[in-house]
Nucleic acid binder design. Structure first.
Lengths: 202, 202
DNA sequence: CGAATATACGGAGACTGTCTCCGGATCGCA
DNA sequence: TGCGATCCGGAGACAGTCTCCGTATATTCG
């Protein structure tokens, strides 16, 4: 089962495609033309589709660093004295990341409601839900968040805010304002107004 | 300036296309193939594009009945004793309508943030924002809704919730639950739990 | 009724983007 | 150097959007 290491040119092309995709997605949103990404990377379309069979696979690869950082951040926030503040901060970090790339929210929300393991993005998505759940139940058990909402609802809601703010002149600002409404609706303490420490750009 | 009446066949084709589009959008979402709609209507693509230059124009025509009903409903709700309850009910009606056709939320939210008068859908969108604003400021003046949110935020948020719930097994249920959080966050009185009277299907 | 003219139709086809297939090139190893 | 295993490239099938213009039809007017 020990697959032998990939050929050097394969690995090179993989990285090239990833790098190109990163800037293409940033420039034109996650709907950027895949053939174009291949062309810009100096490879044929076939090569792209071999490495990344679906758009979601490519997006997953592009976002994975960011997501790992996100999960780590959640771990750190789990030690925050106030569970409510932690949850609020977490959602704000999430949103500021998601706002950095047009279409990310929509892609993640779509991945969330597709059959299990259907796409690599789904895994990323599941990871996000998992850490969110940890923070949420902690807040709920502390009586700092209403109980009739689950993590998936919350992530969906966060993505919804991301989508809503996406086409605005100032996505992050608007997203933050809308998020404030939701945090309030969750019953969180007055902790929604604090600015972020330093949103890790992906 | 009195344009002479359209030719009979033109009007006939217009209606045909509209009817076909209505069912196509309902069946396959608002991304249904336009050429296919033309074919099913027994006309060429050119005919469709002459009557409805863009997809948004067609969607606008399909939705206009529903939107008129929506505006009327808002007028009725303006007489509701509690402004907060009225606003909540209105948003719920809106969401249940939007949930009936996949992609509607996305189309409307896109139309909202495109240059003025760029698309016919934009007009529909503006109408929705207008009536929402009336209900919102009334609630705000009554102290039943927080003041740091404007109608466009709210509509954007509602549409985003529509998108988020769209691919779910039970769109309306999930949308309603998410909306409840937002309504609570808005500071609305406990009126978010009431079921809808009878959602007018469009 | 039978032109004349404005109006509308239809569908071929240009264009863009997705995705596949397989002959041929390239790599890695002995 | 030679030989598999692996990977590449790009032609091209397919689907959807949208346009252009020769042709057909409706309406009007003599």
């Amino acid at each position: 089962m020990a697959t032998r290491p990939k050929r050097a040119d394969a690995r090179r092309n993989y990285e090239r495609l990833l790098a190109t995709a990163r800037v293409a997605f940033e420039e034109h949103g996650v709907d950027a033309s895949l053939d174009d990404i291949a062309k810009r990377s100096g490879v044929g379309p076939g090569t792209l589709y071999r490495h990344f069979p679906t758009r979601d696979d490519l997006l997953h690869a592009v976002l994975s660093d960011w997501i790992e950082g996100l999960v780590a951040e959640a771990g750190r926030l789990a030690d925050e004295p106030s569970p409510g503040v932690a949850l609020g901060a977490w959602l704000r970090v999430y949103l500021s990341g998601v706002s950095a790339q047009k279409g990310t929210s929509a892609a993640l929300i779509a991945a969330m409601s597709s059959p299990w393991g259907a796409s690599a993005l789904g895994d990323s998505q599941a990871a996000i839900c998992t850490v969110t759940e940890r923070l949420l139940v902690r807040a709920q058990e502390a009586g700092e968040a209403r109980g009739d909402v689950d993590a998936r609802d919350l992530v969906r809601l966060a993505n919804a805010v991301g989508i809503a703010a996406e086409r605005t002149a100032e996505p992050v600002v608007n997203a933050t304002r809308m998020l404030a409404v939701i945090l309030d609706g969750l019953g969180l303490p007055e902790a929604a107004a604090e600015p972020l420490p330093s949103p890790a750009p992906h």
